[in-house]
Amino acid sequence: MRKLLIPLTYLVFLVLLIVPLIKIAFGAWEDGVDGLIHAITRPEAVHALMMTGLIVIVVTLLNTLFGVMLSIYLVRGTWLGSRLKQLLNSIVDLPFSVSPVIGGLMIVLILGPSTTIGAFFESIGFKIVYAFPGMVLATLFVTFPLMVREVMPVLQEIGTQQEEAASTLGAYGWTTFWKVTWPLIRWGVIYGVVLTIARSLGEFGAVLVVSGNVMNKTQTATTLVYQDVENFNVVSANGVALILVAFSVALLLVMEWSKKRKGVH
């Protein structure tokens, strides 16, 4: 069985991942260097890539802050009851079980311009849906579990002995976190950041629903690729997709290299 399953695994990996990446790379260069440069420097592509970058930055910062905070509460929060912890754990896993399109639709139904909350925010000049804030919320909804599910197992594994020792010696809460907890969970947080960035770059369904996909306004790189494919502009679509793939792969490779250099397992 081993001799059968190992080659089968490599075959599936090759067909589902490597071949499409090679196809995208060759498709981006189909019109030569000039075609690739034009695909990624046209005004709509520049705007979409900048919009994607802004979303990635904001979502990563929010995801890191609240993800680490919630992880500590769920593992260390003795004041939280077991039922409440189970409920919060279920809510964290909700994006894994709900389609991103449904997540985007929920944001529209709650914060859309036709709702009470959305109309109130628009009346004070703060538009959420079909604007940048809604796109951030949609991406945050999809990526939020990634940080929590990376940090929680690390907190559970290291236990509380070192933190309790620091507290016994008179360290305050923030001092204990930065001097004891943070060095132990640092690589879990970093890996959660890498996964968040990679997932944010590739998010499509939820962002498409809440953004409206308006060119040069609320269009991201993934929705631009979708529009190019719909317009049979496949070379340009491959060019933008290649940029996203290259950045994600480079980020993961740098992460793995750093872990090996630091001897992290």
Rank of each mutant, 00 (worst) to 15 (best):
L65H: 06
L65K: 04
L65A: 14
F66D: 02
F66R: 01
G67Q: 07
G67M: 01
G67Y: 03
V68G: 06
M69S: 11
L70Y: 04
L70Q: 01
I72Q: 13
Y73I: 04
Y73K: 12
L74I: 04
R76I: 12
G77S: 12
T78E: 13
W79Y: 12
W79F: 14
W79R: 11
W79E: 05
L80E: 08
G81R: 07
G81V: 04
G81N: 02
R83T: 13
R83I: 14
L84V: 14
L84N: 10
L84H: 04
K85F: 06
K85A: 10
K85R: 15
L88S: 09
L88N: 06
L88F: 14
N89S: 14
N89E: 14
N89T: 11
S90D: 14
S90E: 09
I91Q: 05
I91R: 03
D93F: 07
L94R: 07
F96S: 07
V98Y: 09
S99E: 10
S99Q: 10
P100S: 13
P100E: 14
P100Y: 12
P100N: 13
V101G: 11
V101L: 15
V101D: 09
V101E: 11
I102A: 15
G103W: 08
G104E: 04
L105W: 05
L105F: 15
L105A: 14
I107V: 08
I107R: 00
I107D: 01
I107A: 01
I107W: 02
V108Y: 01
V108D: 00
L109Y: 10
I110Q: 08
G112S: 11
P113L: 05
S114N: 10
T116L: 15
T116E: 13
I117A: 12
I117Q: 05
I117T: 11
I117K: 04
G118M: 03
G118C: 10
A119V: 06
A119Y: 08
S123A: 15
S123P: 09
I124G: 04
G125D: 03
K127F: 00
V129L: 02
Y130W: 09
A131N: 12
F132W: 07
F132M: 12
P133E: 03
P133R: 02
G134D: 03
G134E: 00
M135D: 00
V136F: 03
V136N: 00
V136M: 00
L137E: 00
L140A: 11
L140G: 08
F141Q: 05
F141S: 09
V142L: 12
V142H: 01
T143H: 02
F144Y: 14
F144N: 03
P145W: 12
L146C: 06
L146R: 01
M147A: 01
M147I: 04
V148S: 05
V148G: 02
E150S: 12
P153Y: 12
P153I: 11
E157N: 13
E157Q: 13
E157H: 10
I158E: 10
